[in-house]
Nucleic acid binder design. Sequence first.
DNA 1: CGTCATTTTGAGGTATTTCAACGAAGGTGG
DNA 2: CCACCTTCGTTGAAATACCTCAAAATGACG
Lengths: 241, 241
Amino acid sequence: MHRPASTHGGLTLRAAPIGAPDSNGPFVRRLLNDRQRKLLGSLATRLTMTPRQVVYREGAAAGSIFICSEGALKSFRELPSGKRRIATFIFADDIFGLAESGAYMNTVQAITPVVCHRLPMESLTSLLRQDAELEWQFLCKITHELRESQRRAILLGRRSATGRVAMFLSALDRQQPERPDKNLIALPMSRSDIADFLGLTLESVSRAAAQLVRDGIVKFDESHVVRIVDRRRIEKLAADL
Amino acid sequence: MHRPASTHGGLTLRAAPIGAPDSNGPFVRRLLNDRQRKLLGSLATRLTMTPRQVVYREGAAAGSIFICSEGALKSFRELPSGKRRIATFIFADDIFGLAESGAYMNTVQAITPVVCHRLPMESLTSLLRQDAELEWQFLCKITHELRESQRRAILLGRRSATGRVAMFLSALDRQQPERPDKNLIALPMSRSDIADFLGLTLESVSRAAAQLVRDGIVKFDESHVVRIVDRRRIEKLAADL
DNA sequence: CGTCATTTTGAGGTATTTCAACGAAGGTGG
DNA sequence: CCACCTTCGTTGAAATACCTCAAAATGACG
C-alpha cells in the first residue's frame, strides 16, 4: 500500500557539525528542518527495495542522487580479478550517488529491505545553488562522510585482523544511534561483505570474530547481532594498538 | 616582504565536477571565479611555511580552514602505539581543516615550502551560508575529496605491497596536472611518509619500489622523482589485480 | 669532508592467505 | 514432515608475504 504522506516523511540527513564547538566526541545530529524536508520531498520519489536489489550499477549515467531512510545497502566495485571491494555501507540518513561525476563509481545494492528517496540530479543541484541554507546541510553531510572515510582509511592501514574487525564493530556502534540496548549492534551484512569492506578474507574475519569472543570482548547473540561485553577494550582495540 | 596583491592571487580550488557529463575520466578543473576569489581573499590571511613547520596540531580548537596554494603538506595522526598514520597529503588547490568538528582531527605539517591561506571558520561559514554559488564550489571540492578518499580506502584493502605503491604513484600522477613531462612524478614526501600513508613499513615500500623498477614499470631519476616507463602496466596494477 | 638522516638490502619470525572440508541455516519440493 | 540443495559460516593445515631486527650504503647539509 502506498502512503503518500511519507513521501517526504523520512527525508533527513545526519552528521556531526563542522564548526560547532561540540562538547566531546562527534555527537551526531539530524539535519534538515521542515521547510527543507518539504522542499526536497517535492523533488523526491520514494522507492522501496528488497534485499539484493540493485539501485544502480557502476558506470551507469549518474542522473540522480539518493537519500536512504530505512534499511542498509552496500556500495561496491567489482575488480577485474573478480574480487569485490565494498566502498561503504549505507544506512538511514545517508546520501549516496553524490560523489560521482557523470557516471556512478560504484554499484549500490540493498542488503535489507530499504526505503529511500531518489532526487534528480539536475533539479537538486539547481535547488542547492539557489538555497544556501539547504546546501549547507549537504555540505555538512558530505564533510561528515569525508571524516568517516578518512578515519577508515587510517584504520585500514593496520595489519591486524582482530583490530580491523574491532574497528568495524566500533564504527557500526557509533553509527547506530537510537537503540533500546546500547550494547547490541545489528550486523545486517554478511561475513564476506565485512571481509570485502575490511580488505580481509572471509575466513580471517571469522577467525578474528572468534578471537574477540574468546577474549570476552564481544558475544554473538545471533550470527548477525553482536553484544558488546567489554566496551573499554573494544574501543581500545579500535582506537589503534 | 608582504605582497598584498597576491593575498588572494593563488586562491583556487580544483575538483572533478559532480553532475557534469564529463567526456571520460574524472577531468579535473579549477573552481572559483574572480568574484569568488576576491570574496575569499578578503577573508584570507596569506601564510608561508617552511618544511616541517606545523600548521595545527591534532586536538587544537578548529578556528580556521585553510587552502593550499603552493607546496605539499601531510595530515596525520600519532597513534598511542607510537606509529603514525597519514590521513592525506595536501597539495595546491586543496582545502584542509574543514573536515573537523570543533577540534582538528589531525596534525598538519609542511613537507616542502608552502604558501597557503587561512580563513577564519566563522566568517567563512557565514559567507557560505549566504552565497550559494560559492558554497557550491566548496561542495564540489569536498565531494571530490570524498571520492578520492573512498578510492583510496578501496585500494588500501589490498594486501600486495607493490600494488599499493603502484596505486599511490598512479594517484599522484592523476593529482599533478600541469607538468612539462607527463611521465615525471614528483615525490616530495619521504619513503616513511609513503609507508605511513599506505599502511606499510618503510622497508616494504622500498622493496616494492625496487620491484617496480626491476619490472621496468618505473624508473627513479632521483630518489624523489619517478619516471613512468610503462604507463599501461602501472595503471593496470593500480586499478587492482 | 664529516655527520646525521634517509634509503636500501639481508635474514628470520609471524600473521594472513590459500586450499580444503565440515557444519549450520534457509528455501523448495516431494 | 522430511529430504535435498544452496548459501553462509566455521575450523584446520601449509604457503606466501610482510614485518621485525640489523647493518650497510647513499644522500643531504653544515
